[in-house]
């Protein structure tokens, strides 16, 4: 618990018409840690994600990103691409959104767009082929190659992303997000649709991102084996509100969490709530 959290969400509220998807949600993600956001289907997890990454504009509340150098960015005021560009928050999607007609390598090159744009003098210098741009491109290819090695896809670098196996696409999407060199990596159900072996290698990858690169990770996940294994901190949501928070062990034993996941009738739920609090 040293230093400021990288992300602090304060009383976040999101309404769609009359429906309250997220209500007064407050939590924090520690720097260099893996924070998991879990909850049953329809709990509002993805809505929180979309608010953090700028795809939705929150109805109320504040989302603050604290950079390494002490700068603070108000994410709720930035819109879509600026969050990735200026606040350095990268994300993946629940349903994979790669560029299927482009190769794995090209996908990772697109992720480095902003850095390469600057190096190419906003296209004009790149068009006449100045050496500084060529060097920048070589560095970008090197970074992409490095990530392809990490995710074990180096031999598929020149294959179309749409031709890769499902698990490989998941890993490639994470690598693509990491190529933007983010401060905070947000993963929306990275283990969805993966088999046990692929889940294990995913856990390995996420731990290496946290350990070797020190990138903070916020993830939504249903696969409890992954969540319990790699998370440092877990936030549990149900019906748009936070119902529990703590280490994996604390959360696993929380009766409210068990009730939310298993479903109980009203009397039982009340009993669980009382005994829990």
């Amino acid at each position: 618990m040293s230093g400021e959290p990288i992300l602090s969400v304060d009383r976040l509220t999101m309404r769609f018409g009359g429906i309250v998807a997220v209500q007064d949600l407050s939590f924090a993600a520690e720097r260099g840690k893996i924070t998991a956001l879990i909850g049953p289907n329809g709990a509002g997890k993805t809505t929180v994600f979309n608010c953090i990454t700028g795809f939705y504009k929150p109805t109320g509340g504040a989302i603050r990103l604290n950079h390494d150098d002490g700068r603070q960015t108000a994410l709720e005021r930035l819109n879509d691409f600026r969050i990735a560009k200026q606040a350095k928050v990268a994300r993946t999607f629940q349903n994979i959104r790669l560029f299927p007609g482009m190769t794995a390598l090209e996908n990772l090159m697109v992720a480095q767009h902003n850095a390469l744009m600057r190096a190419s003098g906003f296209t004009f210098l790149g068009l006449i082929g100045v050496p500084t741009y060529r060097d920048a491109e070589k560095r970008a290819i090197a970074l992409a190659t490095d990530w392809l090695k990490r995710i074990n896809l180096l031999d598929r670098a020149d294959d179309a992303a749409g031709n890769l196996a499902y698990g490989d696409q998941r890993r490639l999407e994470i690598a693509r997000a990491m190529c933007t060199e983010p401060a905070l990596l947000c993963l929306d159900e990275p283990a969805a649709g993966l088999n046990a072996r692929e889940s294990a290698s995913l856990s390995e990858l996420l731990r290496s991102i946290r350990g070797e690169l020190g990138t903070s990770i916020l993830l939504i996940e249903h696969d409890m084996s992954v969540v319990m294994e790699i998370s440092d901190h877990i936030v549990v949501m149900d019906h748009g509100v936070k119902i529990a928070e703590g280490t994996p062990r604390e959360v696993r034993d929380d009766p409210k969490v068990i009730a939310a996941y298993l479903g109980t009738d009203e009397e039982e739920a009340a009993a669980v709530m009382e005994s829990g609090s």
Partner: peptide
């Protein structure tokens, strides 16, 4: 080309669409 493939993913990567 990325824009043609997937505009939402472009925005998530910080590309000013």
């Amino acid at each position: 080309e990325a824009l043609r493939e997937d505009e939402v993913a472009c925005r998530a990567l910080g590309i000013n669409t």
